[in-house]
Structures are given as C-alpha cells and as structure tokens.
Write a protein that binds this DNA or RNA. Structure first.
Lengths: 207, 207, 207, 207
DNA sequence: AATGAATGAGGTTTCATTCAT
DNA sequence: TATGAATGAAACCTCATTCAT
C-alpha cells in the first residue's frame, strides 16, 4: 500500500513534468530559446519559479529534453516505414517522405524549434543536433548505395553530395510547408513531388 | 571650403566602420549572436565601448548590417552569371551553383552567421531572412517556368515544391561543405553533382 | 488511560528529536551554519523536510538548541570540579583546565560550532554567547579576588584585564588543540603548561 | 598629456574603490558577512549594482580585500616596534601590546570583522585567517626561544602551548576592550596588565 | 571623435518554510 | 505523525546602453 502512494506520487510527478514541458514548448517555439526567460516558462506553466527547478536543472536542460523528444519522433518517422508494405521503390520513398511531413506538421512547435532555434546554441545542443543530421545523411548514403546495388539508382552519382541534396530538399519542403507557414497542406501530394524530383529530376525527356 | 576636410573625415569614418564590422564578423561567427557581448565586439575591434555606439545604433543593428552585406553578395552570385556565356542549360546552372559555392566559401564567416545565427532572432532579422529566401524561391519558380516554356524542363512538375527542393538541396550542400567543415572542397565537382541530381534525379535509366 | 500511550509517544518524540539534533550537529560543524541548508539537515537525519519542522521551529532554533547544550556542558565542566578534592590551588586550577579540555575534546563538533560558527549570527545567538563569556569572565574575576583574599594571588593585578587574559589563554589552547586540529593531545600536560603560565608567567626568576 | 588623463582616471578609480571598501566595511561589521547582501553594499556605497562589480569580482572578494588590509596593519603593528627604542624587555613588550591595542581600536570595524565574521567562512577566507594566526603563533614561539636564549624567559616552559596562551590572552583583551564594547579605554594601562600577567603570572611571591 | 565609468533592469538559481495528502 | 511538492522572496551577477570628460 505504501507502493500505491509512491506510484501515485510518481504519476503526479510525471504529469507535472509533462505540463511544464508542453507549455515551455510553445513559449520556446514562439519567442526562441534566447528570448525566452525562466520567468516566461513558469508563467506559461502556471507554477512558481522554484517548482520549475524541481523538474529541470536549467533552461538548457529542458530545451535539450524537448529536442531529444523531437529527434526521437523524427527518427521513428524515418525508420518506421515498413519496407515490405509496398512493392515499388518510389512508393516506399513516398511513404517515408509523407510520414516525415505528417510528423513534423503534427509537431509544428517542436519542428520550428529544431529549424529555427536549435541552431548556434550551447555546445551541448549544437552537438546533439549536428549528430542527428550526420546520422540522417549517413542513412541516406547507405540507402543510395543499396539502390545502386539493386540497380534502381544510377551508379555515377556522388553519394555524399547527393545525400546532402536530398536531405536539403527534405528540409526545404519542411521549411516551406511546416515551419514558415501555418496553413494546412497535402502531405501526399508534396511527397509525390519530392520523390518525383529526387528520382527523376526536372529535365524534360526527349522522346 | 572644408570639402577636403569633410571628405577626409568621411573616409576615415568609413574605414573605422569597416574595421569594426570586420572584427565583429569573426566574433559573431565564432560565438554566435547571443553569446557575443558588446564587450567582445569592442575588445576585438580595439575601440572603446562608446566608440562602438558612434558607428552602430545597437548590437542588433550591426548584426543586421552584416546580414545585409551577405545577402547582397549572394544575390549578386545568383544573378551575376552571364546567361549568354554558355550555351547549354546545364552549364549555366552549373555556373550559378559553382558561383554560389565559391561566394559562400569565400565568406565562410558570414555564411555561418546566415545559417546558424541569423535564425530565430528579432523579428526584423527573421523577416529580412524569410524575405530573402522567398525571393530566391520565387526566382527558382520563375526559372523553372522559363525552362518549361523552353521545353528543357518537364511540365508535369509541382513548381512550388520543386523550387523548395532545389533551394533546400543548395542549402544542403552549402551546409555540408561550407558551414559544418573548414576544409577545402572542389566547387565545380560539387556543382556538377548538384546539377546532375537536380536535372536528372537518381533513377537508373533502363536501356 | 492513555497515559501509557502518551508516555510512549513522548518518548518516541524525544528520540526522534535527539536523532535530528545529533545528525544536524555534525553537518553544522562540518559546513558551518550559513552553508548548511535545511536540505542538508534532513538528508543527514533521514527524515522528510516537513518532519524537521515538526520538531524545530526553524534553522536558527535548532542551532540555538545545540548551542545551549554545549554551553550547559561547559558550565558544568567549569563548576563541576570538587574544590575539596585537592589541597593546592595549582592542582585545583589544573583540574578545571584539564576538565575543560577533555569536555571540549569530547564534543569537538559542538566546540567547533561554538568557536567558528556561533559568531556573528543572529542577535539572539550573539547575545547568548556574549552572556556566556561574560559569565565566565565574572567567575574568573571572582576567583581571582578569592585568591587575593587567600593571599595566593598578587593584589596588584588588574582583575578585569587579567581575567580577560586567562579566558583568552584558555580559548587559545582550546583553539589550538581542539578546534584547529583533529589529532589527540595530552590534556593534563597542556593543563599543566597553562596553569604554570597563568600562575607564574614566563619570566626567568633570578636566583 | 594623455598620461595626465590616464593618471587622473587611475586616481579617480582608486578613490571610488576606496569609497566602496569603506562603506562596505561598516556594513559587514554591523550585519556580518552572511547577512550582508550585495544590495546592502551598493546601497551603502551609493552606487549602482553594476558599479560594484566594476571594482570587485564578488562579495567574497571584497571581503578578502578588507581582511587583507587589516592583517597588513596588524602585522605592521606587531613588527613595527623598534627593538632599540627601549632598553628593558617588559617595556618593549608593553610597546608592542599597546600598539596592537591602539591599531585594533583605531580599526574597530575591521577588527570586529576579524573576530566575529571572518570565521567559518569560505575556504579562501578561512585559509587566509588560519595562516595569519599560525604566523603570529610562530612569531611568538620564536620570540620565546629568543627570550630563553637571552636568559629572560624560563626554559622549562612548553613553547607551543605558552605561545597559544599568549596569543589567546591578547585576543582576550582585544575582545574585551575593542570588539565587545564601544567605550574608550587606556591602552597603556591594559598593556601594562597584560605584560605583567604574561611575564609574571598571578601568583603571589612569598617574601 | 574617442573614451570607459556608470547605470539598473533583468537574468538564472537557491532555499527556508508551508500545507495538502 | 510523516511526507515532499510547491512556494516566491531574495540572492548573486551580467550586460546593452548612456554620458561626462
């Protein structure tokens, strides 16, 4: 029965933490990391200054926690597509891109932070971020090589540079449709265009 | 009378301004906007605190001035390619991309600021920045349409999304080769790969 | 009825209080009053923050309680020597000094607090402390006068100043042997030297 | 001529520093180190918060500076007596003691800090303080041995313990006449009594 | 034009104490 | 009785900007 009490406390603690995380997320997303003060965070959370520090060591720490959360979700979005689910390569790619677009759109605040704020911050944040992008790029390089092996991808491409292009193209559309504007968009249509571009380029094929 | 004196003073003033701008550039680029204090700037410039304010209204203002400078150079890089100089579309594109890569590499500090620091700052900066990217994207949309008209570009592409992709791909390689690493690279080779990717995509053509 | 229950409760309460007092003693002694937080105290005691306040009104109060305890023990040490036990004045003084040294050595923590921390605190503490020393000094003045009456002490001495000297000398050796170092020492030997100094001074007697 | 400006600035800087030191001294002396806040210090000095930090790194630092000042003066008081000025040992000692009493009385605030506040503080302070007392005690041990060599001091005394006694006795009178009360006193008379006690003890000499 | 001392609002963080459970 | 989450005043310190010299 002491267990019950402990469990309940544990649960309430988790709830409170969640509440502070969520409200801080909007504040960070709206004003930016540097322009956000602890005062802003606690006002938004509706708790006292001291309470904040019961749950997070510092401003940097809560930000890192938020960042970690988004990175986790994006990673899941990238990896989470079932490769067996669809036969053709284009369809698979489309599924991944659409998934990423949906995930980022569903987490607009977090994504905005990732694109706009989590850049040029404390070394800890910067390191975490660069690591994530490096990971993504490596994944793309790997995937391209797989494609070459399977004969689906040209073998005369510069893997590294092309991976950077694809990653950049992805960031480009996310920027355009998720970060910079609030309006809705059609993830499947955009994903279509992205894959079409990445696979076939823009050149007119002569008959 | 005094014209000579005025002109000389004017000139000296401009030199001093330049000196502060240049030293501030490295400091901003190395430590980031928020982690850079006026103290850092005046120490780097070797002038007194008060002197700084004789030349710039505020910390934000000098940063905006630096930003404006880079945007100007990049715009020139994009527009400055002589369309007549080379006959084929691919060669023209390659020339533009290579020019952009060279310009950013030559202004690594400024570029780093553009990519890493000039993001999530005051609304003024953010607005200026978004404006620049919108302008670039519009230019790309325009160029794509021109290409379609000329029959060089497929007409089934989503102009807006594709423009975002290309812009993103460009940012991607600049990030990869200029911002994140200090080492030299071959602008022409990279430009080749970028154009090849943008024009032809990655798909293997079946014979 | 309930008497048994009340008594048991009373007893358990006393035990708990003792436990907190004892653990707090070491903490205060090690880190000092101001550098010790309630958190430190409750961690050391192994009780919850709230529990602490069930037994003590405040941080200042528990400290005063500890101080009171030491003062009580020291007073007993000073007064507790049986004047009849030894015939000569020197031997009696030696017994008192040795007793004080032993008491302070046995309560090193408390003594350290008395010498190092209980100084410059709240007025309440300061007053209590000054009172204790005044009491000691008065006791010494009284004793000196008794000695004069008995013909054991020179009558040309300045009672007040001399009492201050003796009190200071005592504090000096306690500081040297108890407060500043942890190592053991020989209370009787030191007491000997102290009494020899206080009674005879350092001057070489000419034959 | 630029030199003149620099020198004037230098001088004004020193004056300001002095002003803050002096006002801080009274505040520390009155309220104690821990109960004194930076706010108290700047209010007393009549300067802005930031100004304080132009002259001192921290609260601890200004306190250490004050401490250093008093230690310097006391050291001078101890060493500064001209040994040739007076023939007899007692007269020399009396001169030293009187000098110390006068110095401490003239610097009542600083002395109070030394006795009441500079105890159990940050390690830096504590170390500086213990070092000073050790130095004094060593000086006394040395002096006693010199006395023994000259045949003025008994050679059967415990040098270390006796030095602690003398140091303690000195502290005792300073405490009594300087720290605990504000009223004036006769330094020469007290010095007389102290030396008389230290040299001859309290024992009645039998004819 | 150039200086750098001075300002004070506002930053992050701590901690003695309370109170609902 | 015992708990520990919550409080919020107040601590120390920074820094963009001003202004007398």
């Amino acid at each position: 029965m002491g267990d019950g009490r402990t469990a309940r406390a544990e649960r309430s603690r988790e709830l409170r933490r969640r509440q502070i995380l969520d409200s801080s997320l909007s504040v960070f997303s709206e004003h930016g990391y540097w322009q956000t003060s602890i005062t802003d965070l606690v006002k938004a959370a509706g708790v006292a200054r001291g309470t904040f520090y019961l749950y997070f060591d510092s401003k940097q720490k809560i930000f890192l926690d938020l960042l970690e959360e988004l990175i986790g979700r994006l990673r899941a979005a990238v990896r989470g597509v079932d490769p067996q689910a669809d036969p053709t390569v284009d369809a698979q790619l489309k599924a991944i891109v659409a998934h990423i677009l949906r995930t980022t759109a569903e987490n607009r605040h977090l994504t905005r932070i990732l694109f706009r704020e989590a850049v040029g911050l404390d070394d800890a944040v910067q390191t975490r971020l660069t690591g994530f992008y490096d990971e993504l790029r490596a994944y793309l390089v790997h995937t391209l090589e797989l494609g070459v092996t399977l004969g689906v991808v040209r073998d005369d491409i510069d893997r590294e540079t092309t991976a950077s292009c694809i990653l950049g193209a992805l960031r480009g559309v996310v920027h355009r449709y998720v970060v910079d504007h609030d309006q809705d968009f059609d993830p499947d249509g955009v994903a279509d265009a992205v894959v079409s571009f990445a696979m076939g380029g823009v050149r007119q094929r002569t008959a």
